[in-house]
């Protein structure tokens, strides 16, 4: 079974983002980066699928040269080889999906495992767009995945409960946080990863024009809530909710 899994380099969510005073972007000086959380679940699931079915795991990232770090992390976890599609542009999810579509056409995997959402740009688009571009079926927000007889049966998190969908391979599956528990890279894994191959390409090599369809014109901070007050008792809480907030 050949598996492609995607990883995006994102700002560490534990860090506070600062916006540039002129509103043209976020401050990147001194910022720490890591692999998008949801992609860790995708990589972990790829490793589990390989353990069960055998095969190869190819990890792909689209981004600046520094994204090789996140590719290495995936290789250290257990992926077999990497592909970096190098660009210094900030791509929208549509451009990412069009780039990934060309990589997938070349690699022809049985399944593509992605995160459901980037935790920096919070878009939740690339997997679904990729499915549409490739004409593959999709199963998003997966918390459970079983592969047998050329089909994937996927438990999905949806509003109002859970849902089950079956998709014929090749298919796109996007991971939700309860899919598995991503492993940490082991020391031998990290050493092995150093010898694993990372191919480099550019969107141009793949024949993709990465012009964005969505442009960000301005970044700003949200309105902040005014500081509240500490109440001393349940009685005081009820009193304030009734008379001050008029919430009861």
């Amino acid at each position: 079974m050949k598996i492609v899994t995607t990883v995006k380099r994102v700002t560490d969510p534990d860090m506070k983002v600062k916006i540039k005073p002129d509103g043209t972007g976020i401050v990147t000086d001194g910022v720490e980066y890591r692999m998008n959380y949801f992609d860790e679940y995708g990589v972990e699931e790829a490793i589990r699928l390989k353990q069960e079915h055998g095969g190869e795991i190819v990890v792909v990232s689209v981004g600046a040269d520094a994204s090789t770090k996140e590719i290495r992390t995936a290789l250290a976890m257990g992926a077999d080889r990497g592909i970096l599609v190098e660009t210094d542009e900030e791509l929208d999810s549509d451009a990412v999906a069009r780039v990934l579509a060309e990589v997938i056409k070349e690699e022809a995997p049985d399944i593509v495992l992605m995160g459901k959402q980037s935790v920096d740009t919070d878009r939740n688009q690339a997997g679904q767009m990729l499915a549409a571009y490739l004409g593959y079926p999709q199963a998003t927000f997966a918390f459970e995945l079983k592969v047998a007889d050329g089909w994937a049966t996927v438990g999905r998190e949806v509003d109002g409960g859970t849902s089950t969908k079956r998709v014929k391979l090749p298919a796109i599956v996007t991971a939700d946080l309860r899919l598995n528990e991503p492993r940490y890279a082991s020391l031998p894994g990290i050493i092995k990863a150093k010898r694993k191959k990372i191919d480099r390409k550019t969107p141009g090599d793949l024949g993709v024009d990465t012009a964005n369809r969505v442009n960000v014109l301005q970044y700003e901070a949200p309105e902040t809530r005014a500081a509240g007050q500490i109440v001393e008792s349940v009685d005081e809480l009820i009193e304030k909710l009734r008379t001050e907030a008029k919430a009861l």
């Binding site: 920096d120 964005n212 442009n215 301005q218 970044y219 700003e220």
Partner: peptide, 18 residues
């Protein structure tokens, strides 16, 4: 123009769709 939150609601962007 559209506005939307990102970075877990810590940033709001104004967007143009071309």
């Amino acid at each position: 123009r559209f506005k939307r939150p990102l970075w877990s609601g810590n940033v709001i962007t104004t967007l143009e769709v071309t």
